[in-house]
Deep mutational scan, measured.
Amino acid sequence: VCQVIAMYDYAANNEDELSFSKGQLINVMNKDDPDWWQGEINGVTGLFPSNYVKM
């Protein structure tokens, strides 16, 4: 598990995705897919595009 910072706002398009705002910290749970990582914010988990965040 690592933390990343959102570089942009992201609004989920599907129920399994994670919405976040620019500057939010996201706990990364899974990086099996290079493009879509699984993350957690405040107890909510979902997929998000890895190119929207930085380490």
Rank of each mutant, 00 (worst) to 15 (best):
S50Q: 11
S19T: 11
M7I: 14
N27Y: 08
K54E: 11
G46A: 06
I41F: 15
V53I: 15
Q24A: 13
N27T: 11
K54W: 03
N51Y: 09
N13C: 10
N42P: 03
V28I: 14
E15C: 10
L47T: 13
G23L: 03
N30C: 14
Y10F: 08
L25E: 15
M7S: 15
C2R: 04
I5W: 09
I5H: 04
V4K: 02
K22L: 05
T45F: 10
T45K: 12
V4H: 04
N13L: 14
E40R: 09
N14K: 14
Q3H: 04
P49T: 02
W36P: 00
N42S: 12
Y52C: 11
C2F: 14
M55T: 09
L25C: 08
Q38E: 13
D35Y: 08
L25P: 06
D32M: 10
S50T: 08
V53T: 15
L25Y: 07
L47P: 03
A6R: 01
N30R: 12
D16Y: 15
G46H: 00
A12C: 07
M7P: 01
A11V: 09
L18P: 01
C2E: 03
V44I: 15
Y52I: 12
D33F: 04
W36V: 10
N30I: 06
A12I: 03
C2A: 07
Y52F: 15
A11G: 12
M7D: 14
D33I: 07
L25S: 13
G43H: 12
S50D: 00
D35A: 11
S21A: 14
D32E: 15
E17C: 07
D9W: 03
F48P: 02
D16H: 07
N30V: 10
G39D: 02
L47H: 09
L25D: 15
M29P: 02
T45N: 09
E15S: 13
I26E: 01
T45S: 13
L18V: 07
M29W: 10
Q24F: 13
I5D: 05
D32R: 10
P34R: 12
T45D: 07
M29I: 11
L18A: 02
N27E: 15
E15V: 13
P49D: 02
T45I: 07
A12M: 06
E15M: 08
W37C: 02
K31C: 15
S50M: 14
D16R: 14
D9H: 12
Q24D: 14
N13F: 07
K54A: 06
N51H: 12
P34V: 11
D33A: 09
M7Y: 11
V28K: 00
A12D: 02
F48R: 00
N30D: 08
K22F: 05
L47W: 09
P49A: 04
K31A: 15
V53Q: 02
D9L: 02
K54T: 14
D32G: 07
N27M: 12
D33W: 04
Q38D: 12
M7E: 09
N30L: 12
G46D: 01
G43W: 03
L18W: 01
Y52T: 09
S21Y: 06
G43P: 01
P49K: 12
T45A: 10
V1Y: 03
M7F: 05
C2N: 15
P49G: 03
G43Q: 04
G23D: 12
W36D: 03
Q3M: 10
F48N: 00
L25M: 15
V4Y: 15
M7K: 06
K54G: 04
V4M: 11
D16K: 14
P49C: 09
Q38L: 09
D9S: 09
F48H: 00
D9Q: 06
G39N: 01
D16W: 06
T45R: 08
N51M: 09
S21W: 06
G43N: 09
N27G: 06
V4R: 03
N51L: 05
P49L: 05
E15L: 09
K22S: 08
S19W: 03
F48I: 08
W36K: 15
V53Y: 02
G43F: 04
G43V: 02
N13T: 14
D35L: 12
C2L: 04
M7Q: 10
N30Q: 14
E17W: 03
F20T: 01
L25W: 07
A11D: 14
E40N: 05
D33H: 15
S19G: 10
I41K: 07
K22M: 06
V53L: 02
D33C: 15
P49E: 03
I41V: 10
G23Y: 10
V1F: 15
N30M: 12
F48A: 02
Q24G: 09
G23A: 05
V28Q: 00
N30F: 07
N27Q: 14
P34E: 15
E40S: 14
L25G: 11
Y52M: 13
A12T: 11
Y8P: 01
D32Y: 08
Y10G: 02
E17L: 06
D32V: 09
E17Y: 15
Y8M: 13
F48W: 00
W37Y: 06
M55G: 07
I41D: 02
N30T: 11
L47S: 13
Y10C: 10
S21N: 13
Q3I: 13
Y10N: 03
G46C: 02
P34I: 09
P49M: 08
A11F: 10
E17D: 05
G23E: 07
L47A: 13
M55K: 04
M29N: 04
L47R: 13
M29V: 13
N14V: 07
A6W: 00
M29G: 09
I5V: 13
I5F: 12
Q38S: 10
N42W: 05
N30S: 12
I26D: 01
A6D: 00
L47Y: 11
P34K: 15
Y8G: 09
I41L: 13
D32T: 08
K31H: 05
W36Y: 10
V53N: 02
T45Y: 06
Q3A: 09
G23W: 04
F48Q: 01
V4Q: 03
K31R: 09
N27C: 10
Y10M: 03
V1N: 03
N14D: 07
F20G: 00
Y52E: 04
Q3S: 14
E15Q: 14
K54S: 10
I41C: 05
S21I: 10
M7W: 04
D32F: 04
N14A: 11
Y8V: 10
N14Y: 10
D32Q: 15
Y52N: 07
I26N: 02
N14G: 12
Q38N: 03
S19D: 05
L25V: 13
D33T: 12
S21G: 11
W37A: 01
W37E: 00
Y8H: 05
W37S: 01
I5M: 05
G39R: 00
D16M: 09
N27K: 10
I5Q: 08
D16E: 13
S21H: 15
K22D: 04
N51F: 05
P49Q: 06
F20P: 01
D33L: 08
N30W: 05
A6K: 00
Q38P: 02
V1P: 02
V1T: 15
N30K: 13
L25Q: 07
N51E: 05
Q38I: 15
Q3L: 06
Y8E: 13
Q24N: 10
Q3D: 04
N42D: 05
I5S: 06
W36I: 05
K31G: 12
V44E: 07
G23R: 04
L25K: 09
P34G: 12
L47E: 06
L25A: 07
G46F: 01
A11W: 06
W36Q: 11
W37T: 01
I26W: 00
P34C: 04
Y52W: 05
I5K: 04
M29S: 11
I5Y: 09
N13Q: 15
I41R: 12
N13I: 09
D32P: 15
I26P: 00
V1K: 15
I26G: 01
N51R: 12
Q38V: 11
